[in-house]
Design a protein around this nucleic acid. Structure first.
Lengths: 175, 175
DNA sequence: CGAGGACTATACGGTAGCGTATGGAGCCGT
DNA sequence: ACGGCTCCATACGCTACCGTATAGTCCTCG
């Protein structure tokens, strides 16, 4: 996961990882039949750890608006996780990555949709706004990584930014 | 630019491009001293074409809210451009890409800020909302590429999505 | 027309990664 | 104590890319 976060999917490779671990190719190929299996193992782990975990943590709260705010806060808190997330999006065309990324994304947007439904949005509006919220998340972590100077750096600036985002994303749909 | 859009920065390479063009390495190395120069040339071209061009097209309208809507529409219209955009963000850690990406991003957010100012936002709120709008843009093209099933596919669904986005992004700041 | 510049082609050596082969260590049960 | 299982190390061939060397073609201009 570290390699994925640091160097993208290309860094999830047999020889570099073996070196990093002070081992050799020979031993690596005993544990994994080939590089694809290694990548699959990393993806499987990511999918399991990054779906239910956060949802479960947010689900203890009752007020859906508060849940949204918590969700955003939690999503941005884990820097390592967001770097992995970006690495996988960067590798979205990879045939091994694509299905996993699709599943996780749809599941997350699905959960966001339930929150918007509980806020009182009609189904179609809830789904649309959930997607919009997710793109805001994606774009923000992308920007934070690529051009961090464009985002607030201090804590209160960041809080203002989040507040404004939640405010914008919870404005009632049409009229 | 095609190679960049299709295969990311890694595809902007001497030998693959030479083959693609029906030429040989030898000829490529006459035009460019090395691979880095080739990449720089592509980046320079991108920076020039993708900054003033769109801004100029939007600047003919007067109403800033309408400009925002137009800007969003224009930003999503050019599929090729958004793929290049994503390729560069994926390669954001590359020392050649980083400064170019930073310049372009800050310039675009700067322009968005002027629009929000003209809408009537106080400076700080305008800057914040401009950033938020840009992350929405980034996240949406990211999602469209990675998990296109999560976004509306038909024209009216897309229009509704854009309308909702503009609506959310133009809600007045705090109170 | 012929010399030099613009461009192309072929061949070479180097690096980084994949995957395979093969030969070990070290431990475990009989 | 010894055959077998687990795990690791070394060596090899293969591919794709980088960059260099060198020779060739063709066009233009004096």
């Amino acid at each position: 996961m570290d390699a994925l976060a640091d160097g993208g999917l290309a860094a999830v490779a047999i020889e570099p990882l073996a070196t990093r671990l002070g081992a050799t190719k020979g031993s690596a190929y005993w544990h994994f039949p080939n590089r694809e299996a290694l990548v699959r193992a990393a993806l499987e782990r990511w999918e399991v750890e990054q779906t239910d975990a956060i949802i479960a943590r947010v689900d203890v709260v009752d007020d859906p608006r508060e849940q949204l705010r918590l969700l955003f806060k939690a999503a941005f808190a884990d820097l390592e996780a967001s770097r992995v997330q970006l690495a996988l999006h960067a590798a979205a065309t990879d045939p091994v990555v694509a299905p996993v990324l699709t599943r996780v994304t749809e599941r997350r947007i699905g959960y966001l949709t339930t929150l918007y439904l509980r806020v009182g949005f009609p189904p179609e509006d809830a789904a649309r706004r959930a997607t919009l919220a997710y793109t805001t998340y994606l774009g923000t972590i992308q920007l934070r990584r690529s051009v961090s100077s464009a985002l607030p750096t201090d804590a209160e600036g960041w809080r203002d930014y989040l507040d404004d985002a939640v405010r914008a994303l919870t404005v009632p749909p049409h009229d």
